[in-house]
Design a protein around this nucleic acid. Sequence first.
DNA 1: GTTAGCACTCGGCGGCGTCGAGTGCCACCA
DNA 2: TGGTGGCACTCGACGCCGCCGAGTGCTAAC
Lengths: 339, 339
Amino acid sequence: MSDDRRLDVLRAIVEDYVTTNEPVGSRSLVERHGLGVSPATIRNDMAVLEEAGYIAQPHTSAGRVPTDKGYRLFVDRLSAVKPLSAAERRAISAFLTDAVDLDDVVDRSVRLLSQLTHQVAVVQYPSLARSALRHVELVPLDDDRLLVVIITETGRVEQRTVELEHAIAAELVPELRARLNVSAGGRRLSELDGPLASVVEAFAVSEQPAVRAVVDVVRATLAETTEERIVMAGTSNLLRADRDFPGTVRPVIEALEEQVVLLRLLTEMAEDSVDVAVRIGHENTHAGLSETSVVAAGYGADGETVARIGALGPTRMDYAGTIASVRAVARYLSRILAG
Amino acid sequence: MSDDRRLDVLRAIVEDYVTTNEPVGSRSLVERHGLGVSPATIRNDMAVLEEAGYIAQPHTSAGRVPTDKGYRLFVDRLSAVKPLSAAERRAISAFLTDAVDLDDVVDRSVRLLSQLTHQVAVVQYPSLARSALRHVELVPLDDDRLLVVIITETGRVEQRTVELEHAIAAELVPELRARLNVSAGGRRLSELDGPLASVVEAFAVSEQPAVRAVVDVVRATLAETTEERIVMAGTSNLLRADRDFPGTVRPVIEALEEQVVLLRLLTEMAEDSVDVAVRIGHENTHAGLSETSVVAAGYGADGETVARIGALGPTRMDYAGTIASVRAVARYLSRILAG
DNA sequence: GTTAGCACTCGGCGGCGTCGAGTGCCACCA
DNA sequence: TGGTGGCACTCGACGCCGCCGAGTGCTAAC
């Protein structure tokens, strides 16, 4: 029994359906791909594939369409890696190297990815918690308020205002700034507890409450994961999909507008895989995304993942191409942040 | 000749069309509104209104639909101000006062506005150029690179890296920081030229090139209008419109993805009016927005407009309600920034 | 200036028949 | 046993047709 051919048939169905967006029948299948058998044979194979849940027919006497399970098998075992063209590599490189600051890098990346994939692209800002601290700056605003500005190695800047119970002596601010930067500079959140504690202890007991307030804000800001930001591009690409299946886009856009949903999704996917992760259709726990697939990868300096990027589109997408693009952009992005 | 009644008819047509989204005919018009005349009379009036370009019929023997010109007249002269309900006022107030920092304020505002109007909402970040400077911070990165962090009164933070030709003496950094903050703190871009020049002159000639590089970056950053950021919410509200007129949404979403387009639009509208400005259909110069209306208003502390907010939707929108919401949110926003 | 009446227009809708892609099954072949 | 050709069947897509009704413009009368 030729199990191989069945897989060939499945691959052919996925490929055809992705390009034509029409249920694919046995005749066109043998024509477009050089399978050396007759339509009738293919029909038998398709019956088996359908029985096993890899494909389905929208209605009697229409061609077959891959199910989520079918796409999954395709992605895991059938799709060949599709290397990017030289032109695409050049475009990525040129597009990203011009960037001037972190905002710009993120902005360019997300646009680039949406253009490469023709899907909705998503880029998460480098997480504060996982980035090393570059510098902490303290700015007295008035007697009992102090502005704390936190700058990470990845170039992200965050600011918080600290309300002080009692005024802090003005002369202490430079000292506190210096101590903070010496002890905490270059470290990540996970390595900060000791150094920060020692900073507090370096001050006179009478000053410690104020110092502790500042230190706590620094720690809290770095720990704050809810503040994570996301940028998105290529939403209009969804409308192409809507022309095919009117109405399916609404819940997707609503999901996209809830950054929380996206963040949770990306975080979950970080656990799926070390490299590029793929979620197909119902594999996305969020209901609105049940006909949507997401391809995501992590990026960050020094092989340390600080955030993720992804592309999102209808389950009927070019997985090989999308995976290649996401992986490529993630790598360039890592390189830029490291450099 | 009763010109008044014709205007009543126009108003009635706009109101009916906005709620029903169907061309409105003479019979239903007299029924739904208590005009004390017969359909035939209305038909005559409608013929006049059509002649004058305020209404049009999609095809022979359908009802009438307002033209852009008709909406314009409606907005300018016919629509009554629609005060917000107490519940709405409370919602605005509650929603905005909880915000913790500028990002949060902007984020909440845009969501709020999209919910109130059921349209796409847009909020522009407070412009750097028009905000007063609160503080400039300098952080040496290595021998020939200096990080400049700029903080405005509205709470916006911007950072730039300066590449120095020759290393700047480390001891000079605190002095430069101090001088910058004394001379420039609290001033707007337009008042900065003199103070900045005097900062440069306060240094020894040998140090001036480096100092000037830093000062130039500060000035350039404040002057940079291209870097203006915009946030958006409620894109999914457009899809409702697409159900009525399939295909019209695509160009709009594409326009929205180009922040430049939106920024130019908001800037143009700033000149239209001191209060709330309205652009209807073809009045938007951008081609993709020719079936879209935009309602915008400025906000800022101390009566000084530092940025704008707006709502955007199909020309067939509830102008009175949208205008009221935009105005209200702009006012609360101003109050928060001032406080 | 308003109204009633009337002929006319035209898009929307539902029914109908045709067409064709695609299927499942069965008998047959190597 | 697996592959193949043949065949009857299904069912959505498409185009045609005729009806219905909302809406109009015009004219003659009030």
